[in-house]
Amino acid sequence: MQPDLHQKQQQQGIDVAVLVSIGRHPTTGRARRAEQDARGLELALAMEAELPGTRISMLHAGSQDDSSEAALRGYLGMATGVGMGLESMTLLEQPEGSDAIPALAKHLAATSPQLVITGARAERGEGSGLLPYALAEHLGWPLVNSLASVEKVENGVVTLLQALPRGQRRRLKVRLPAIISVDEAAPAARQSAFGPARRATFEITPTSPEADSELAQWHLAPARKRPKRLKIVKAASARDRFKAAASKSEGKGGQVLTDVTPEQGAEAIYKLLKEEDVLR
């Protein structure tokens, strides 16, 4: 009886809050659903499919106008089934140029979800990627970045796969509640369906906005192309300068093994591979 009940509690799933922002199309500059946040929502939907009873709530802090609403509806159209929890989205209303962190931290502390999923960085504005870290510091929760997938949730501990550079993965165990941030390594987001997106509603919650005064003082300009690094030749003599300009670069001259048995050659290669730590 007792274990059965326990099983049931496990099966109930957890509360997941997905933080979404308004993206910017890289070529046209139009508002759209942000790439990384959509991947975060995709991850949450995958969790819901794995773990029945998971409740997803979406959260956005910003102003409400036509273009932003269209962008936010892009997220709402991602779940087509009834009762998937995407019939509405909480919108913490605050004017453009306000700091989103206090409003989000306050709301998350009040609703206390067990898992918060965000994109790694915003596509417009400062886009520094500091928000998940700021929330983790405010709430005192652990944070894991660059997530690839959620493997399982049990007894308040979530097992995750973190994406490492060069396609590698690392398995982590994190105590809930936690914040996880998602970037390009997570599975790509599904398409948004128009009908459910139209039917979904916004729950508008007014906040006491705090203006981001520091950002207002900075000078923002469209990105310039970064200058290409020049090959600087520091040569003492004319001969060296000429050589650097004319000759094609030769390698540092590595070790060449001639007239060795295959075993000796293999041993030298094996030693190098061990040294570089690529053999697992």
Binding site: R24, P26, G29, R121, A122, E123, R124, G125, E126, G127, S128, Q217, W218, H219, L220, A221, P222, A223, R224
Partner: peptide, 10 residues
């Protein structure tokens, strides 16, 4: 900043 679309001087 802004996913590589902005230069922020600060």
């Amino acid at each position: 900043g802004g996913a590589g679309s902005l230069d922020i001087q600060r």
